[in-house]
């Protein structure tokens, strides 16, 4: 999608303009409200939530719920807090993102600069695999992970996320490299440069922006995944699964403030990425839907 600069603004009267601003601001409030509620209530003592107003700022400010969510809340049967699961997520996300992005770059390079018969069919199949409902692979995946001895382990989750992530990363790099002049690659070939030399010297130096898009997309998706984590996480559950266990636990008093603090902790990494590199995040989203 081209990032054009034109807007389609029409001439509008003062009443219309006021209406537009009010409309836009109301929706901004709608989108911000849950974040405000989570943040405000994660800083209150529990009594202020159960007896007070969810929309109010804390009267007594406290970091207690955050500390509890992080290091001592009951997750499942262990009072470990979310900390070990946060670590699990990191250990899972980093290799999965790295591997799937590298594979995506190589695939995109082959599919645009070293084309062969049938390559577009392969790409089509790869693309379709991005959109399958993962329920269709859960049962055989569970069996195969069990056979490989990877069930309930971080390497198992990394494998799953790489396998179902390369479709998107390949898509990104393929579309990006398609716009790169093939003549340059041809000229390098005539000069005797090999497959990897061309990739290393010519393609890679220009791949910065799309690599960022790919990394951000993969990071967000894998960090936020729940289905695979819940199905194959076993002893190595990621953050999303732990948060759900924390919130759904039926024993004891419902500590809403701890739940909210936990939810923000689970959201923090992707939210930070969004704040720092939002532009690339949007590009990734768009490339996943409107290609070209």
């Amino acid at each position: 999608m081209s990032v054009a600069t034109q807007d389609t603004a029409v001439r509008t009267g003062r009443v219309t303009r006021t209406f537009i601003y009010v409309f836009l601001l109301l929706f901004a409030l709608f989108y911000l409200m849950p974040l405000f509620v989570m943040l405000a209530n994660s800083l209150k003592p529990l009594s202020e939530i159960t007896e007070g107003n969810m929309m109010a700022l804390p009267k007594v400010w406290t970091l207690e719920p955050w500390a509890k969510a992080w290091s001592s809340a009951q997750i499942g049967v262990e009072p470990t807090g979310l900390r070990p699961y946060f670590l699990n997520s990191i250990l899972m996300v980093v290799p999965a993102v790295a591997i799937s992005t590298v594979l995506g770059a190589l695939n995109g390079y082959v599919l645009t600069k070293w084309r062969f018969r049938g390559d577009s069919i392969l790409f089509g199949l790869l693309l379709f695999s991005c959109f399958i409902p993962f329920q269709i692979v859960l049962i055989p995946m569970a069996m195969v992970l069990g056979k490989l001895g990877l069930a309930g382990s971080i390497p198992g989750l990394v494998l799953v996320h790489v396998v179902y992530g390369i479709g998107f990363t390949t898509l990104y790099f393929r579309n990006y490299y398609a716009a790169f002049p093939t003549e340059l690659v041809r000229a390098a070939m005539i000069d005797g440069a090999g497959f990897f030399q061309i990739f290393w010297r010519i393609m890679l130096p220009v791949s910065g922006p799309i690599a960022v898009v790919s990394v951000i997309w993969q990071f967000t998706n894998i960090w936020n995944d729940f289905l695979f984590g819940a199905s194959f996480g076993g002893q190595s559950q990621p953050m999303t699964v732990a948060l759900n266990n924390l919130v759904q636990s039926s024993t004891g008093v419902k500590e809403y403030n701890v739940h909210f603090a936990g939810a923000i902790l689970a959201a923090l990494p992707t939210l930070l990425v969004y704040i720092v590199a939002g532009r690339y995040f949007v590009r990734g989203l768009m490339a996943g839907s409107v290609k070209g």
Binding site: L24, F27, A28, Y31, L32, M33, P34, L35, V37, M38, N41, I49, T50, M54, T220, W223, N224, D225, F226, T240, L243, N244, V247, Y256, H259, F260, G262, A263, I264, A266, A267, T270, L271, V273, Y274, I275, G278, F281, V282, L285
Partner: peptide
């Protein structure tokens, strides 16, 4: 405004679900 409209997309559905579960809870 644009980033405000779009940031929920960066969150996990589990986070979204948790937030709205309590926001729509009749008790609190």
């Amino acid at each position: 405004l644009r980033p405000i409209y779009l940031y929920p997309m960066a969150l996990s559905f589990i986070v979204t679900g948790t937030a709205w579960k309590w926001i729509m809870d009749p008790g609190i």
